[in-house]
Design a protein around this nucleic acid. Structure first.
Lengths: 104, 104
DNA sequence: TGGCTATATACATATCTAGAGATATTCACC
DNA sequence: GGTGAATATCTCTAGATATGTATATAGCCA
């Protein structure tokens, strides 16, 4: 069970890219490959890492493998971030107040 | 200008640890070193990386350097995470509903 | 069965990075 | 000015990792 392992896996930009592509829903490997400047083995390897971290799930459909997001580890990452939120929320409040003032 | 560089910097567990320690407020390097199982140069190096990513700020006080959190990059990371939130919020709603049902 | 498609794995390599130890820098204080 | 304390930087090294090429595996269809 990886605690905040998601952040280590998602440090890799191509893996973030893959996840972004999967936000549109289930996708076969080939389609992911087509939208990235990486070879198929490289993409498969990233998918393996994502799967091991529980960030994606696979489903076989004939020779195809359909990948989709598993959001749980992202929720954990979000939880890790939570205690820090108060550090910037005040400034954001200030910003909102400032913007609201510009067009009353 | 690092877009989501924070996530790459925070992939390192010791750097997350440092940030956690700084949640308690400004700290000199020596104090951070004392609470970690790392040599002073190693901690200084991590602090350098954190500073380059804009995740911390330094302030000199005599020979001491007081480090503190700069929350902006964390806010960016939070923003990156935002589009994914809908993926798990439904399940969390379900969980909450389930829990609420157990003690009416 | 044979050939084609889709994906995964093996292997080799080049790059990156965290870490330790040693040294340099900066400041306070005598 | 000299000494000691606090921190930064330099150098080197061991380990990790992302990638490409080549190969294996598995399923469909004729």
């Amino acid at each position: 069970m990886p605690s905040v392992a998601a952040i280590e896996v998602l440090a890799e930009p191509n893996r973030r890219r893959i996840l972004d592509l999967l936000r549109g829903g289930e996708r076969p490997v080939g389609e992911l490959v087509a939208q990235m400047t990486l070879t198929q083995p490289a993409v498969s390897k990233h998918l393996r890492v994502l799967k091991d971290a529980g960030l994606v799930d696979v489903r076989a459909q004939a020779q195809r493998r359909l990948y989709r997001i598993r959001p749980e580890p992202l929720a954990e990452l979000d939880a890790w971030l939570a205690p820090y939120r108060s550090l910037w929320s005040k400034r954001l409040d200030d910003l909102e107040r400032h913007l609201a003032q510009k067009e009353p």
